[in-house]
């Protein structure tokens, strides 16, 4: 594996809201050997790929609104558009900053439906996505219509929490495609959590979702999206509770069956059978 590929894989594996720290560590590691490694075309592509697949959001310079980047709302180069704020903007994939906002109306045959989804989505996001406070955190949503696939409307929601002082970060992503022909809603919902105080613990979960016979109004589409999100979040919570009571408990007991701690001075007298000790 070439150095550029190694560095790319580190970028792609960055936990939510921690890109700055990962880049700093990569710089410290590679400055002797190849200080220009972060400028390598492969590595630059990895930054873009990471930000787009993670639906990374940023506060638009000069405004209070957050915008997100994805493969669906990209114009050309580092330019993206946002139908919520009717702006285009430039995104720096290394620093994750959105700048140069300009008034922009996306030209699509689905403009009416897009603005109808938009309205319902605004209410849904306000109802379920709490405001995030720190600099590297935030939530954003957008509805996009890639010009190469005119029958598809991308509905994207992303929320990032980053609390370095508490060594915690997290990200929620909803990436759904509505097909105007088949009236289906398909895509993924994903949640990640990273906890790194005297350790490194990561929750990573993704679910493929698909729903047929979705209505063709904005409110109907967002109603199904809300249902899918709710189901998924409840299943994640259920899985965590189930693991706590199941797999986790099965690994190591809290106390021996006797409910007493070991008397180490008498341990030779515990008289377990060889079978129980695991002796063959």
């Amino acid at each position: 594996m070439a150095s550029a590929e190694v560095v790319s894989s580190f970028v792609q594996g960055t936990p939510p809201g921690e890109l700055k720290e990962v880049v700093q560590s990569i710089q410290a590691l590679t400055s002797d050997g190849d200080p220009s490694l972060l400028q390598h075309p492969k590595v630059k592509a990895a930054f873009q790929n990471y930000n787009e697949s993670q639906l990374v959001c940023a506060k638009l310079s000069g405004g209070s609104q957050h915008v997100l980047v994805s493969p669906y709302n990209r114009l050309e180069g580092n330019k993206y558009y946002d139908t919520t704020t009717s702006t285009s903007f430039t995104f720096d994939h290394t620093t994750q900053k959105a700048s140069n906002p300009q008034s922009y109306t996306h030209d699509s045959t689905n403009n009416d439906l897009i603005s109808s989804i938009q309205k319902s989505l605004a209410t849904h996001v306000a109802e379920h996505y709490p405001a995030q406070s720190s600099a590297a955190a935030g939530s954003a949503y957008t509805v996009a219509s890639p010009s190469e696939t005119p029958t598809e409307i991308a509905i994207l929601i992303s929320a990032t929490k980053a609390s370095p002082q508490n060594f915690v970060s997290g990200r929620w992503r909803t990436t759904l495609l509505y097909n105007t022909g088949s009236r289906t809603l398909t895509g993924t919902i994903a949640a990640q959590v990273h906890y790194y105080e005297d350790g490194n613990v990561a929750l990573n979960t993704t679910k493929q979702v698909s729903e047929n016979n979705v209505g063709d109004s904005g409110s109907e589409i967002v109603r199904v999206l809300a249902k899918l999100e709710k189901q998924y979040q409840e299943e994640v919570n259920r899985a965590l509770v189930g693991m706590n009571e199941g797999s986790f408990r099965g690994l190591r007991r809290q106390l021996p069956v006797t409910r007493q701690r070991i008397e180490w001075e008498k341990i030779r007298g515990y008289g377990l059978s060889d079978n129980l000790k695991g002796n063959k």
């Binding site: 306000a126 379920h128 915690v168 929620w172 949640a191 959590v193 613990v201 965590l240 693991m243």
Partner: peptide
């Protein structure tokens, strides 16, 4: 501590990102 971080914290952070109940 593992129990707290793995199950408690993970669920809390997901809940901080998205609230199951309506915020209103």
């Amino acid at each position: 501590q593992l129990q707290e971080v793995y199950f408690g914290k993970a669920k809390d952070v997901v809940g901080d990102l998205r609230s199951v109940a309506s915020l209103g």
